[in-house]
Design a protein around this nucleic acid. Sequence first.
DNA 1: ACAAGCAGTTTTTTT
DNA 2: AACTGCTTGT
Length: 686
Amino acid sequence: MARRFVIKLDPERDAPTLTINYEEALNSQQYAAVTAGGGPVLVVAGAGTGKTRTLVYRVAYLVETGTPPEQIVLLTFTRRASHEMISRASMLLDGRCQHVRGGTFHSFCLGILRQYAPRIGFPNNFTIMDSSDAADVVDVVRTGLNIRKNRRRFPRKRTIQSIISGVRNRDTTLQEYVEAKFPQFVEYIEVIGDINDGYSRYKRSHGLMDYDDLLLHCLFLLEEHEDVRKRVAGGCRHVLVDEYQDTNLSQAALVRAFSSEHTNIMVVGDDAQSIYQFRGADFRNILSFPQQFSKTLTLKLEHNYRSTQRILDLANHVISNARYKFEKKLFTEKVGGELPVLVQAADNRFESRFVAQQILEIRENGLPLNQMAVLFRNGFNSYDLEVELNRCGIPFVKYGGMKLSEAAHIKDVLAHLKVLENPLDAVSWNRILQLLEGVGPKTAQRIIEWMESGPGEAFELDEARFSPRYIDSVRGLFDVLRRVLNQKGSITEQLERIVAYYEPILKRVHYDDHPKRLQDLEHFIGIAESFPDRATLLSSLALDPIELTAIDTDPVQDDEPPLVLSTIHSAKGLEFDTVFLIHALDGILPSSYSVDDSDALDEELRLLYVAVTRAATRLFISYPTLQYRRYEGQYFASPSRFLENIPANLLDEGSIVEEAVSVVEGAPAETEEEIQGLILPPTPTN
DNA sequence: ACAAGCAGTTTTTTT
DNA sequence: AACTGCTTGT
């Protein structure tokens, strides 16, 4: 007779032993999120409430409680964010966290598509186009359709590309979208539709995908191929999504697909920080999450650990002016602190000198440079300041603005690599052929068509068909490509060969500044060295472009962590002790492109909210009164409308006084105490 | 017919 | 700084 023995479970002893004391490290709301079970979880987390911390601990918790790290998918907004979170989780727990799969939606989709592309009629080695490549294709298609540009006010190639992309990222039609956003082009809706059709066909026949395709083709793949969906979603035991308020329709659908097998999905975000509506994101996406996933557990993080109460008061006041009423109000225990200040400067130069001097002073008082940041609306708003910082010897890094891989000369060299990787890539062929003397759009097109129809062997040129005016230079191009291909050297060797070939072209095309551009190319070769192969280099560059200013950083003071300059968009998710928001002008912070559209205007307001909430203890907002415009010359600009009529108990006012001698020890006027001691040296002539 | 060079206009934010 | 449209040159 069988006997049954019962062992009593002792929760003290038999619970998995956790090396991290989660309860102690987190507040109760964070703890609830980190230790939540499976199923859909929505975490609505205000600015500075420990959103990143929560995700990091969540990753560690999942790993510790037995989820294989490679079955955890952490989708973030930038690759920087995903690297940071994964390495923080690794430090918290151990190296197992390194195997968590992370990245942007685009890079995660790329990985899937590289594997399964043939299932949807693409080669595995398809090329990723950035938006200016896409605009070039649009132009080729438009020319091919014989659409005359000299029709009245026909949209530019960039505009057509952004219309096409705008429609694909939203739940709308071309008709509706153009009527709403580009009423001046309503008469061309049909033509734009034709261009769009041609554009899709062109991409498909040449193995090209734009950014939208990475998401949409991946979604199509998962929806149409049950076995692929099962395999991919089967590997996603836990899906975590950061910055969910900035996802668009297709990203929400992808989240659904990824989590379709295990339904363990946690999304984190803040509707008040949605700043990518221009790209199709909709903050209502995050609010409708519980409707899209049944039995959603909703948690809120409202306790701010970052900022002083005075900064939060200003932030709460700013966001209360939005048409849409956001529900949460942030609170903190950091009472008091300095009142944020709004500083009026006479012009750009005064603003720059003010900021640089404050930074020097604050550093003098012991705050490291990398805990300060200067934020601005547009990449070019910091040009003047960058000059001033260089003059003062303040090292800085800049995020946002011009990217290395967007510079014409880098794109030229990259296009050579791209045709080696994907010989069908007609955009790149088009680009590199037109660099040859005597070859323009028409000839480039004819050569491409000849290559596609004719010889099996790539990079071979047959005689007589082409004019002797350029035949030799085409042959020269093919020779270089063939040599690079046959030699199978390292990336560096391949690039060096191409740059050597390209150098004379560079001198001809950019005669006035070729030394600077050649320097960029050398620097680029150095960066490329760290990539394992050509394909990885090209994909990484397309999805995670390198900042152009990485080049200018002077090696003199590289032991000091640099000051951060950033567009507000690129500063999302970051925090600093001291923040300077510069160029807070009407027409810049509410961008002049947004003032007619109340939704867009609201987004600009949220942008200001994001900027303000980056600051922990000190916030300076400044604007120059005098601005220049091309033909009108100088004119007086007004401060941001968002900063008007702010009660004096929330925002101080300051002005800049010029003082040729030394600091006056006396009592300055109250409103000027913030900038007491600012000495402006005589304005240099340059 | 097509390329090259010049003049005038237009520039957000990002994967 | 890059794109578009116009004029000139081969």
